[in-house]
C-alpha cells in the first residue's frame, strides 16, 4: 500500500500533546480502506494521528466527535480547511496540514 507523505505542524500549545514537537513529517496509507480503495482524507489523518502519533492520553484535547475539537483550526496548505472540503479533503503527497489551537490570552 503506497504511502502518502504529508507534513503536519502544531501551534498554540497543541505540540504539547504530540511529544512537544512542532513539526512532524508523516507517511499515511494512500487509501483509508483497502477494500473500497477510498483515498485518505483529512478525517482519516486526524484518526491516524490520534492512533499513531499522539503520546498524550487526553484525546479529547484534540478530537471531539471524530473531528478536530472546537477551538482548533485545521489549515491545509495555508488555507482554512473549510475552503477545501473540510474532513473530506483528499490528501495529496506533500500537503501541509496545520492544526492551530486558538489563543485567548491578552
Amino acid at each position: 500500500m503506497a504511502a502518502r507523505k504529508s507534513s503536519q505542524s502544531h501551534s498554540g500549545g497543541l505540540e504539547l500533546l504530540f511529544s512537544n514537537q512542532r513539526k512532524h513529517k508523516v507517511s499515511i496509507p494512500s487509501t483509508s480502506d483497502a477494500t473500497t480503495g477510498q483515498p485518505s482524507n483529512v478525517a482519516f489523518l486526524i484518526k491516524w494521528l490520534c492512533d499513531n502519533l499522539m503520546r498524550d492520553p487526553r484525546k479529547e484535547m484534540f478530537v471531539l466527535d471524530d473531528t478536530a475539537r472546537p477551538g482548533i483550526l485545521v489549515l491545509i496548505n495555508d488555507a482554512d480547511w473549510e475552503l477545501e472540503g473540510e474532513e473530506k479533503y483528499e490528501l495529496q503527497a506533500g500537503d501541509e496540514v496545520v492544526f492551530v489551537s486558538t489563543l485567548h490570552g491578552g
Binding site: G13, E60, M61, L64, R69, P70, G71, I72, S101, T102, H104, G105
Partner: peptide, 8 residues
C-alpha cells in the same frame, strides 16, 4: 467554544 479545560 473550546472546551473550558483547554483555555489558558
Amino acid at each position: 467554544p473550546p472546551p473550558a479545560e483547554s483555555v489558558l
